[in-house]
């Protein structure tokens, strides 16, 4: 599946929820299901500090694809991290750089990306793109 197909799939999943309670209930479920990072990865080097909650983001580059792992101390944010990882992990840098992340907006959770929420999510997306730029350079050099 392409990055956009996965995003559309998530939008579809969320359209089944009738109210925000269910929507957030699902996010909490996703957050609880997301595997915790290894404690050795939960270090300052990988932290993305928000005013409200913290997000850790770790990446590996294997066979031309970026593997992202992440976590947050707040479950709702962790749920959003889980969704993001589903979209961007195991993708080539090009795929990440050439596609817009539209699903958060479309599932009605855009408020979590507003700078006032300061939950680290916006910074996380920026960080994902930065990794993609960096790995893209590495793979171009490798060619």
């Amino acid at each position: 599946m392409t990055i956009n197909e996965i995003q559309k799939e998530i939008v579809e999943e969320f359209s089944a929820f009738e109210d925000w309670m269910d929507k957030y209930g699902y996010l909490i479920e996703l957050g609880n299901e997301l595997k915790d990072l290894d404690p050795k990865d939960k270090i300052d080097q990988f932290i993305i500090k928000g005013c409200q909650s913290r997000v850790w983001l770790v990446s590996d580059f294997q066979d031309g694809k970026i593997i992202f792992r992440g976590e947050s101390d707040a479950v709702i944010v962790k749920g959003l991290v889980a969704l993001l990882l589903r979209v961007v992990s195991n993708r080539t840098p090009q795929e990440i750089l050439n596609n817009e992340l539209f699903f958060i907006d479309e599932i009605g959770l855009k408020q979590h990306l507003s700078p006032t929420r300061s939950n680290g999510l916006l910074a996380m997306i920026k960080q994902i793109k930065l990794y993609a730029v960096a790995y893209n350079r590495i793979s171009e050099k490798g060619d």
């Binding site: 957030y24 409200q52 707040a74 709702i76 944010v77």
Partner: peptide, 13 residues
């Protein structure tokens, strides 16, 4: 066991 941000987000709703 519950993060303050999670509580605040849901209370807002």
């Amino acid at each position: 066991g519950i993060h303050f941000f999670d509580l605040g987000t849901m209370l807002d709703k």
